[in-house]
Design a protein around this nucleic acid. Sequence first.
RNA 1: GGCUCCAUGGUCAAGCGGUCAAGACACCGCCCUUUCACGGCGGUAACCCGGGUUCGAUUCCCGGUGGAGUCACCA
Length: 551
Amino acid sequence: MDYNKLAELLFPHITKTPEDYEALYPQRDLPEGAKVTRLGPSPTGFIHLGNLYGAFVDERLAHQSGGKFFLRIEDTDDKRYVEGAVEIIINSLRFFGINFDEGATMTGDIGQYGDYTQSHRGEIYQCFAKKMVADGTAYPCFMTEEEIAQIHEQQEAEKANPGIYGKWAKSRNLTMEEIQAKLAAGTPYVIRLKSDGDMSLPEDQIRRVQVKDAIREILDFPANDQDTVILKATGIPTYHFAHVVDDHLMRTTHVVRGAEWLPSLPIHVELFEKLGWEPPIYCHTAQLMKIDEETGNKRKLSKRHDPELSLDYYRNQGYHPAAVREYLLTILNSNFEEWRMANPDADIDEFEFTTEKMSNSGALFDLNKLNDISKDVLLKISASDLYDFLKGWAEEFKPDLLHIFEDRAYLERILDLGRAEAKPRKDHIYAQQMVENISYFFDDMFRIEDEMPAEAAADVATIIAKYLETYDHSDDQTQWFEKIRQITEELGYAVKPKDFKKNPDQYKGHVGHVSTVVRVALMGRQQSPDVWEIQQILSEDRTRARLAKFL
RNA sequence: GGCUCCAUGGUCAAGCGGUCAAGACACCGCCCUUUCACGGCGGUAACCCGGGUUCGAUUCCCGGUGGAGUCACCA
């Protein structure tokens, strides 16, 4: 068989050579140790937490080493394309602080290693497929879908491994004449890798391949034996081939991808071997998991089944991007939490991220933990920044709430309530929750949500009346509380809660019950931050009005 | 079914042959306290099983078991 002739027959329109592309995309001129990473989403426009998790690794690796991080659109499957997806991807990631140095953008490519959209790179893939055909390491396959389905059935019946390999690869040994005839008849075909692997050999004779993974150390598996499709009938490559060609030509140094790619790693290794290229360093990240409600077991996050893990969900809820980043880093690097405790105020970028410290078992997404982390993160954000963040969130998701932003100073005081103390309050978690938390500060949202405390129920009117009567907005906190005590005593309640607990028969209740009455009248809830501070923010008029209205 | 990955409390996890097996979140209790939150103190709770190797295994090896992933002209 004259493979060169076959290559020309199959790819007469390809005139460039592999050398041309090698020259077009030279080695990158980067400092020693600089890492080049990439994110290769398919343009479905759907991003979930798992994608962010992986993107974060790429971003850290590249930017911590003085390297490059680029975006490549992997749209070799036309069925997946969703309009505007590139924009969504870039914007969603940017929101969480992940920015690309080069690659596809909304307005065109940035960088010297493009085109960064796989569907535009047809000729490049075909050039290398042509080379493989010329080398005798790839061949045209004319099998129809029906034939392949039939083979699958037969394999199932024989309990053989499924797939096109060895004796099942019927187009593998076609003669030139047969191929010419098929071509002349216009029979559609794909290009398959001609694998040297053979899994049917006795176990000790099967060739094994070792790959060092940056997260998982040595990976050891049997060499690939599948004649995997590298070019579809349309001339578009499959993921496997596109990955190998692109990451070589784009001079990617580290390929970060989910562990679901582990099973196809042998294919990629063989492809790199056949093309005579050095493979990149692989970083197979553990999958983010969730508990499946139906089975009660852990399972990989799924785009289809877990819409609540979409990035949009977190934006909707109003989680601050810094909190999400902080959370992701704690599950990404096991020593991050420790580092954070030692450096509570350090910038997150100062943390040295390493693949070695990444876990290789799948972590369950833990909302409790996110919330806890978020409290600490938001505490460090100034009221002014918090205001801007909240407003941005409301503009996008809660336009009917925009009126609360009219008085900036007022909202900032509310957001800062209790945060200046030595032991500051950590009330803020995410926008939606914050808004609910502070709703009583706004008359249109204020309503009585809680009951009056049972101990003081009979005296509610009296307590409020007396309180209003003695109310002086200019009282300091001590003076203010002294008045509460007086009312407490006058009405037969214990000034010290302990007295009441010791002798519950001697009192109607204690000072806590009395102040709770005020709290419910003013805030509509039994629980709130300090009443005096709230009153100061509310203003005298609003305070008096609410008390009066309650009577 | 084949291949692969994974295996320490409810969750995330330190550990890398000798530890009363860290810590964080969650949970419970107590303290602080006019409520809540914050904070402090304390508590419940773990090395999947069986063989080796070794004076000694959570740690190393083998075998099970369990969980996950993957076997497309999808990525």
